[in-house]
Amino acid sequence: MIVPRSKFQITRVDAGSSTAYLVHSDAVNWILLQEGSDITLIDGGYPGQASAVEESIRHIGARPEDIRGALLTHAHVDHLGGLATLQARYGFDVYMDPVEVAHAKREYLQQAGPADIVPIAYKPRVIRWLALVTPLGVLSRKGIPEAKPFPEPLDLPGRPVPVAAHGHTDGHSAYLAADGAVLVSGDALVSGHPISAIAGPQCISNAFQHDVDTARRTVEAFADLDATTLFPGHGPQYDGGVATAARRALEVS
């Protein structure tokens, strides 16, 4: 199912008593896992997209107050920004790979800065991307002071399972959802990006990678997964199998 919206599109994968939704926007994606009336939110867009995240939750018949906990793939502003706003507003816990906690608290920052962007800033696609994301809060340095490592066990609606996916940041995490049918890949593996001319599975631009070699090894590991659907951090849902997506990304990136 594809639901067109002014700010986003929603696609879904059903698995038993739960449903996984990819909310795809031109700037970045976030994911909703719904089980009964309860919601797990994975990532939350830019700071300026917090209201769009709320709207997407209402669109699937739930309320932001139904969020029982959130997961973060990594602490870049386009994934953490809206989540920080919503966590402060609704008070749910936000969990992530233990390595990423200090990053989310902004004790340090592993994020593309001017030195990374200036060399490519002349490109038309980069200019358009900057025009898109600057009003959304790309320059924000706000973190999540209450960021927490995964609890043991991780018991959240939709039963997400963390998958170590380091490289894009030191503590980047992917998640298996929908009984293992869906890989929520964050920026470890994407299916498009505003600055990329490639359509389909790919590794995100090296300008955004903290550790390119480790990030490629993560994608190599994805080639061993059985998940059939990719919910990426950027780009549309990909249904050709995650292993196939990973191999194609390594070929073109």
Rank of each mutant, 00 (worst) to 15 (best):
V3M: 10
P4S: 09
F8M: 09
D14N: 14
S18H: 14
Y21I: 02
V23I: 13
V23C: 12
V28R: 15
N29R: 06
N29G: 03
W30T: 01
L33H: 01
L33A: 01
Q34Y: 04
E35L: 03
G36C: 06
I39V: 15
I39W: 00
T40Y: 08
T40G: 05
L41Y: 04
G45R: 06
Y46R: 09
P47H: 07
Q49R: 08
A50V: 02
S51M: 12
E55Q: 14
G61A: 06
A62L: 13
L71P: 05
H74P: 00
A75W: 09
V77A: 07
V77C: 08
D78Y: 14
L83A: 08
T85G: 10
R89E: 13
Y90P: 00
G91K: 11
F92V: 02
F92P: 00
V94G: 09
Y95G: 00
M96K: 12
V101E: 04
A102T: 09
R106T: 05
R106A: 03
Y108E: 03
Q110L: 13
Q111M: 13
G113S: 14
D116T: 10
I117H: 05
P119Q: 06
I120N: 07
K123T: 01
V126F: 14
R128L: 12
W129L: 03
L132C: 05
V133N: 06
P135H: 04
L136K: 05
R141P: 01
G143E: 09
G143N: 08
G143R: 12
I144Q: 12
A147D: 02
F150H: 04
E152V: 12
L156N: 04
L156Q: 06
V161C: 05
Y175P: 01
L176N: 03
A177T: 08
A178F: 04
L183Y: 07
S185C: 10
A188P: 03
L189I: 07
L189E: 04
V190N: 10
I195M: 12
I198H: 12
G200M: 02
G200V: 01
Q202A: 01
S205V: 06
N206I: 08
N206F: 12
N206S: 10
A207E: 12
H210I: 12
V212E: 11
V212K: 14
T214N: 06
T214A: 12
R216K: 14
R217W: 09
R217L: 09
E220A: 08
F222A: 03
A223P: 03
L225T: 00
T229M: 10
P232V: 05
Q237H: 03
G241Y: 10
A243V: 00
A243L: 00
S253F: 09
